[in-house]
Amino acid sequence: MPSSTGLIEREKTAAHATDTGSGSLLLLRDRGKRIKRHWQLYLLVLLPLAYLVIFKYVPMYGAQIAFRDFSPVRGITGSEWVGLTNFNTFFKSPNFWMLIKNTLIISTYSLLIGFPAPIILALALNEVRSMRFKRFVQMVTFAPYFISTIVMVSMIILFLSPRLGFIDHILSAFGVEAVNFMGVPSYFSSIFVWSNVWQGIGYGAVIYLAALSGINTDLYEAARVDGASRIQKVWHIDIPGIMPAATILLILNVGQIMNVGFEKIYLMQNPLNTSTSEVISTYVYKIGLLGANFSFSAAVDLFNSVINLILLLSVNYFARRVSDSSLW
């Protein structure tokens, strides 16, 4: 076997791995032989690679539309180059601060509530000694994950509607007047975030439960001998035990902070709540595809993607500096 095959099998080394073998001629010839012998593997990856190029990389190349004044007749590359004009228009538009503010409020709120919620559920489940109860709670809380966004939003609308929803039936039992929750702008982010928790808490807990079951039982034994209380065990053993998993997920979440999901927000919008519900992704869709203003909305989108990428890279850098866990 050629020496380069024994290399460490991690993506981290990807960049180095390509140049280590380049030295000797012998190795090169060996590599050629290896490629020839395994030509079928290259045949296999052709189709998937074609997919990646067509549906991922061509659109990336097409993102230059943001710097052009798109005309359908002349195509993306044929349209006139206008530099940063589209970006300037966006920064100066009255919508700019509203969009940034709404996007940040919804995503930060989501992060603050949605990130710890599954951890708390997992820690609580880990204390339960009846396996049947534990499994039942796990099964039930995981189930809403399978509900589609459309059904989820219709459930929210039904439950919160002043006429049909059980929330208003409860309120009216206490003599409170019916409220059209979906029409009140200040409720929007809370409805969005807490319904996400309802739907995702069981799914999110799976990783933490696995991390908890992987904790060395000697630690619990030692803690018991030392007379630690349950809360102390949770605090000093369980929480440190899930920190690596939590760090990774936090990095991923922060990297997505400008990406509040289009699908759910778009469905939850109505004319009454747009002042707090309009975020960058829904704006891009409305201006771009519904309003056919391709270049301008592509610029808004690109601005968003770049901010996201910067956030992801810097959070990862920061996590690597302060702890052992990072994405790469």
Partner: peptide, 18 residues
């Protein structure tokens, strides 16, 4: 090549036009 597509995308409009 794979991981880049996870971190960055061309965006909705270029996707639609493709």
């Amino acid at each position: 090549i794979l991981i880049i597509t996870m971190m960055f995308s061309g965006g909705l409009i270029p996707y639609y036009l493709t």
